[in-house]
Amino acid sequence: MQIHDDPRTDAELLAVVAESDRDALSVLYARHAPWLVLRLSRRCADPSVVDETVQDTFLAVWRSARKYSGQGEVAAWIWGIGVRRLIDTLRREPAATVMLTEPSRTEISAEEQVLLGVEYGDLAGALHTLSPELHAVVQATVLDGLTTREASRLLGIPAGTVKTRMMRARAALREELV
């Protein structure tokens, strides 16, 4: 799928998908499936669950293309659908939701430093001091935009634990930034 060739924006493609254009869906798939697979794989260690989730996500994109408000990036909209599908699947059949990487003990390259600076500004260094569990909760609620309950389903921990860890994370970050 040569997605370079299609000049339409994601929003334009989505509008056409709403008219049941399968071709447009295949272009969206070519553009977004690669990163979606990777991002989901970092939240769920079971590849067949990830595959099923990607499939469900694009089916949901097909069915609810009309509901895209036009606000914000289509990629973010797709991620919102995808992560919630993952949570639904995990609710039915709990699978490994292991975080595949650990916070840094290895060297961070200069590029990565820049990236962190761009994305998080001063927070970057502070985030690194968080333990894996705390970071996972921050990622789920802040980065992935999940509610406490959704985060608890995704991570496989009770909602109460999510809340306490968030408080500890905030406290730790505040300390670091001061």
């Binding site: 990163w35 990777l38 991002r39 794989s41 970092r42 990036e73 990629a75 973010a76 991620w79 975080m99 595949l100 990487t101 650990e102 916070p103 840094s104 003990r105 290895t106 961070i108 990565e112 990236l115 962190l116 761009v118 994305e119 998080y120 970057a124 985030l127 690194h128 894996p132 970071h135 996972a136 990622q139 980065l143």
Partner: peptide, 18 residues
Amino acid sequence: DAVTDAVTAASVESHLLR
């Protein structure tokens, strides 16, 4: 290759959305 640390990976993902 999934060899970045969690924080960097999260930053990458955040960037990719845009």
